[in-house]
Amino acid sequence: MDWLKEQFKKEEWSPYAAGAMLGVVGVLAVLLSDSLLGASGAFENLAGTIGQTIAPQLFDNLYFNYVMPPGLTWSGILLVGVFFGGMIGAWSSRTWKLRLNSDEQWKQVFGPSWPKRWLLAFLGAIVLEIGAGIAGGCTSGLAISGGMLLAPAAFIFIGAMFASGIATAWLVYGRRY
């Protein structure tokens, strides 16, 4: 028990240990709820809800009516848990703190400005979400949840994601790559 507490307080676990834990969570999701873990889809469902309230005609299309129906979905609730789970993780290691821009490596590459970090994060996240929408999932919803069912789509996606991720990092980092 003490050992467990000790582990819980550690700031960083071995990625193998944390990964194994998520693996168990993935199995439980199917066993208990017949659902797959996902992160990007819930945002589209919520966007659909907002969109159909503000501009019903614009959002009255095949995608938002059938592919990603509006509403607070199972994975939307999951995301609420993810938010607080991450908070518990940071809090347990006493590293919980409000930060505007905390990553040293980011500052070295892009400079110390936090609004720049927020703007790039916002724009990058739009790109990310569009990509996930086209592919049919993100790192969790497609790569991991699809991969664990041995869906070919997951492995195609992982390959493409790493190819362009490597290319982008190479362009961003230039000589420092």
């Binding site: 996606f157 493409a160 362009s164």
Partner: peptide
């Protein structure tokens, strides 16, 4: 899957 993955990777690396 390929096109989505390619776009996704750009966002992820950024």
């Amino acid at each position: 899957n390929v096109i989505g993955g390619l776009i996704f990777g750009v966002g992820m690396a950024f």
